[in-house]
Structures are given as structure tokens and as C-alpha cells.
């Protein structure tokens, strides 16, 4: 194989196997279409996109944390805490505020909760899994005990306005099928996070810390500051996801989202982010979320009990991590083979 051929192939594969993932997604869609000819339709497409909105936004926060070499399991708690508290505050104060205020309030709450995570992790150098496991319990407890445990069906006007808005509507088999308008903020956030990670020094710092914290410090990155900021950003993204979730379900339920960690983390890891830190991309994460949604959707279409969905996603997570470990071992062997050729010269 020529050198350019290999590199073109490598470019197509993507630095985090995004190409492979896209291929799997296409194969899966084709397979599902063969099994069930109803699968490939605007309706299914729009349904999958709609169900991907919240997971995508939550996954963006998890992606940043995983690239930095950490893991976050508190994001569903932050998401529902921020969104639910905002709804309660808006109702309590009697201000039926617009969407901007709703967003600002919940994002500030998300940022503060993220700050708690970041502060504990950066200041005391604690393991991220344990810290976020702890704060998850704390946030959940405070929410139920002090903010409320009731299901709220009456949302502020700002949220209600968007609940049933469509971006575009196409006729499909007699009735119309619509794409929800909230895919727009999800895509905008993807672009923003992509820019943040690739084109800012903060983003480079996140990768640097994930690669080698000590080396990042030696190069001059302020590791503590970057860590605090990245957990604040993750908190903000979680809160955004929470608001989107409440808007989409047209109700605020403090028990929602909790338990979705598995799907989200699996999506990020399948999307090529290394669980060891230092690697990952927004594109990969988007594909990972889509893959999980397509699989969940397919299982439903095939009439497989929902309990098996959890098994399938869990299996995917393990496979994703396994592939990473194996390819890491492969690439170390490649170095060896490379030396073998070069050394005698």
C-alpha cells in the first residue's frame, strides 16, 4: 500500500475512528431497513433526531470531562436540579419570564453545581468518579428535600412556547411528520464545544491535562484553573440539557434523567473519546449518541423488551472500551515494527 493511500485511508477513518463509527451507523440503518421497510422514513429520522437532542447536549459535557482524563456521573443530577429549580423559582416568584431568563437562571445554577465538582477535584486532587458520585447524591438529595419532589405540568411560558415548535414539517404517508425546533440549539452547542476544544487554548489545555497532567503543568498550563473551568462548563451544558429535556417533555419531574449516565457515557466512549483521557471529538460524540439512539429505536421496532436495551447499551460500552484498549496495544506494536525497519540503517 502506498504511503498516500494509507494516509488517505487514515484520514477517512478519522483520528478517533469517527469514520468507522459512521460506517457502523450506515450498516445498521441498512440492516434495519431490510428487516423492517418502515424503518427508513422521515418519521423515524425525525424521531431519532428528537430523542438525540438531550443526550447530545449532556454528552458534550461528559466529553469535555472524559478528554481531561476524568469521569462525571453527576451530570444528570445537575441537569434536572438546574431545570427543575428554575421552574420552581419561576412559578414561585410569579414571573412568567421569557426563555432567556429561564436559560440564564438554570445555566447559572448548573455552573455553580459544576463549580462544586471542579473545586473539589482541582483543589483536593480527588478522584473524579468518587467526587461526582458523591455530589450526584448530594444534588439529588437537596433537590428532593428542599426544592420539591412534585411533578410540575405547568411550565413557564418561555419553555412552553418551544415545546411544540417544529423546524420543518414534511408530509409522510397521509399525515405530517415534523422535526423539532430544539435540534437547532443542540447543533449550535456542538459547534461551540467543537470550537472550544479545537480552537482555544483552554481546549488544548483540556487535552493536555488528559494526556499527561504533570507535562501540562510543566508546559505552563494552570492545571487547577483549567480543571475548575471545565467542570463549570460541563455543569452549564448539563443544565442546558436539563432545560431542553423539561421543554421537550412539557413537564418538570425531579426524578427524570437520573439513571441516564450509562447511555451518555457509552455514547461518548463509543464516539472515540479515550476513557484514559486526552482523546475525543465532538463529531465522534454526535455519532456515538446517534448510534445508541438508533440501536434503542431498532430494538423497540423489533419488539424486544426494553430491559434488553440497557443490556445492549452496557454491552456497547464494554465493547467500546475494549476496542480502545486493543487498538492502544496495536499501536504500541506498530511503533515496534516501525523501529525494526529503521534501526539497522
Amino acid at each position: 500500500m502506498s504511503a498516500t493511500g494509507t494516509s488517505r485511508l487514515a484520514a477517512l477513518r478519522g483520528s478517533n475512528n469517527e469514520g468507522v463509527l459512521a460506517l457502523i451507523l450506515v450498516v445498521l440503518v441498512i440492516a434495519m431497513t431490510i428487516v423492517n421497510s418502515d424503518f427508513l422514513s422521515a418519521g423515524t429520522l425525525f424521531a431519532i433526531l428528537r430523542s438525540s437532542i438531550v443526550p447530545t447536549v449532556l454528552a458534550l459535557g461528559v466529553l469535555i470531562v472524559i478528554i481531561s482524563g476524568g469521569i462525571d456521573v453527576s451530570f444528570p443530577a445537575i441537569a434536572i436540579f438546574s431545570a427543575y429549580t428554575t421552574v420552581v423559582l419561576m412559578r414561585g416568584s410569579g414571573i412568567d419570564a421569557g426563555v432567556v431568563l429561564v436559560l440564564v437562571v438554570s445555566l447559572v445554577i448548573g455552573a455553580l453545581l459544576g463549580l462544586v465538582n471542579g473545586g473539589l477535584i482541582a483543589r483536593f486532587k480527588l478522584p473524579t468518579l468518587i467526587v461526582t458520585l458523591g455530589t450526584q447524591g448530594i444534588f439529588k438529595g437537596i433537590l428532593i428535600a428542599y426544592v420539591g419532589s412534585r411533578y410540575i405540568a405547568e411550565l413557564p411560558l418561555g419553555m412552553r412556547m418551544f415545546s411544540t415548535q417544529s423546524l420543518l414539517t414534511v408530509p409522510a404517508g397521509g399525515e405530517n411528520t415534523s422535526l423539532h425546533v430544539l435540534v437547532v440549539p443542540a447543533i449550535v452547542l456542538c459547534l461551540l464545544v467543537n470550537f472550544l476544544l479545537r480552537n482555544t487554548m483552554f481546549g488544548r489545555g483540556v487535552y493536555a491535562i488528559g494526556n499527561d497532567t504533570e507535562a501540562a503543568r510543566r508546559v505552563g498550563f494552570s492545571v487547577m484553573r483549567i480543571q475548575v473551568i471545565l467542570y463549570v462548563v460541563a455543569g452549564v451544558l448539563a443544565a442546558f440539557g436539563g432545560v431542553l429535556h423539561v421543554t421537550l417533555t412539557r413537564s418538570a419531574n425531579p426524578q427524570d434523567l437520573l439513571g441516564t449516565e450509562l447511555d451518555t457515557i457509552a455514547a461518548v466512549v463509543l464516539g472515540g473519546a479515550s476513557i484514559f483521557g486526552g482523546r475525543g471529538s465532538v463529531l465522534g460524540t454526535m455519532l456515538g449518541v446517534l448510534l445508541i439512539q438508533v440501536i434503542n429505536n431498532s430494538l423497540i421496532l423489533m419488539g424486544i423488551p426494553s430491559a434488553w436495551q440497557r443490556t445492549a447499551v452496557g454491552l456497547l460500552l464494554v465493547i467500546g472500551v475494549g476496542v480502545q484498549a486493543i487498538s492502544a496495544r496495536r499501536s504500541s506494536r506498530r511503533v515496534f515494527a516501525h523501529r525494526e525497519v529503521v534501526a539497522p540503517a
Binding site: R198, N199, T200, M201, F202, G203, R204, G205, Y207, A208, G210, N211, D212, E214, A215, A216, R218, V219, G220, F221, S274, G278, R279
Partner: peptide
Amino acid sequence: FSLFPGLTVAENIVLTSAVAEKRTLYSR
């Protein structure tokens, strides 16, 4: 060496100076 294994050679080379210059944006 204190290098970043997951970043490219070029990124590894320029990152220190980018930090020293207190840049906020980064362009590959």
C-alpha cells in the same frame, strides 16, 4: 520528555509557546 502522546508532533512543539504568549485562541 513530558510530551502529550495524543497530540500531533506539531501541536506538541507549539503548545508551550502558545501558553507562554498567554493566547486564548489556538489555530492548528
